[in-house]
Design a protein around this nucleic acid. Structure first.
Length: 187
DNA sequence: TGCCAGGCCCTCTTTAGGGCCTT
């Protein structure tokens, strides 16, 4: 029996070759993971506007509240510990995972020389964005807030990684996709 | 000063362009 893990990143921007991870959150059943990291590159203005993250005097703030941060290596090592603590194998799911979350996470793992340890997990990935488009082709928008609003009937605090993964897990449970559909969008 | 990515998908397409999705 595999563990389904929904994960999300808040980053300094959209350029996957340059951005740093600020927040990494994951949820599997009722087990959650959530850590904040001090970015090494400037947070783009647009990212601050959306996420509320700002660095001031060497400290990370979210919407004016000082956050406890770890260095990137510590946070990623803790994330790997979290994944190892789950029933194996692990299926890691994120919204637009293939184009955004996975390349950003890959690059961060490589920078911290943790990529080989991550590969030992043998995790597979699932991108819920193309899955959503395949399951619900008539929908105008497949952004996570739109999907949450449409299927769960509520808005939530988008652009906080823990809120995002919680919504994504609820959405996935609601969808209850056919295992075949799930496998088509896994890699 | 002002702006800053990128790859997939769709269509009024394929000798292209624009919208979507992520921060």
């Amino acid at each position: 029996m595999q563990s389904m893990v929904f994960f999300y990143l808040e980053t300094t921007g959209l350029d996957i070759k340059r951005c740093d991870i600020i927040q990494l959150a994951a949820i599997s059943g009722n087990r959650t993971f959530n850590m904040y990291m001090m970015p090494q590159v400037a947070i783009e203005r647009g990212a601050t506007a959306l996420t509320g993250f700002r660095v001031q005097n060497g400290k990370l703030f979210q919407n004016g509240r000082a956050m406890d941060t770890a260095i990137l290596h510590e946070a990623l090592a803790s994330f790997l510990d979290f994944l190892w603590s789950l029933e194996q194998p692990v299926l890691l799911a994120a919204h637009n995972a293939r184009r955004f979350d996975i390349p950003v996470l890959d690059r961060a793992l490589f920078r911290c020389s943790l990529n080989e340890e991550f590969q030992q997990l043998g995790s597979r990935f699932l991108d819920t964005l193309p899955l959503s488009r395949a399951l619900h082709p008539g929908l105008g928008s497949h952004s996570l807030p739109s999907l949450s609003n449409h299927f769960l009937g509520r808005c939530y605090n988008a652009h906080d990684a823990l809120e995002d993964v919680t919504a994504l897990q609820e959405l996935y449970i609601w969808w209850d996709p056919d295992p075949l559909d799930e496998s088509i969008f896994s890699f």
